[in-house]
């Protein structure tokens, strides 16, 4: 097979992307959403941790090891 034929075969294999393609603006918004969700989850975990410590008070260390 010549080089030209090889290139033609290769380009035939490349399929156009399927499904919905996001624009740059949409990708940016999705990224912002992901960051917001991550911050909320971390914040919530932190809140529950702090609330638990404050509610239990000294009982946190007052336990059988």
């Amino acid at each position: 097979m010549t080089d030209k034929e090889n290139i033609e075969n290769d380009t035939q294999d490349i399929q156009p992307p399927k499904g919905y393609i996001m624009s740059d603006a949409e990708k940016k918004k999705r990224s912002q959403r992901n960051i917001a969700i991550a911050l909320m989850v971390v914040g919530f975990v932190g809140l529950v941790y702090v609330v638990t410590l404050l509610r239990l008070g000294s009982s946190v260390i007052d336990r059988t090891l």
Partner: peptide, 9 residues
């Protein structure tokens, strides 16, 4: 019509 950002929520 468009993708929502954190501000929309």
């Amino acid at each position: 019509q468009q993708l929502a950002g954190p501000a929309d929520y």
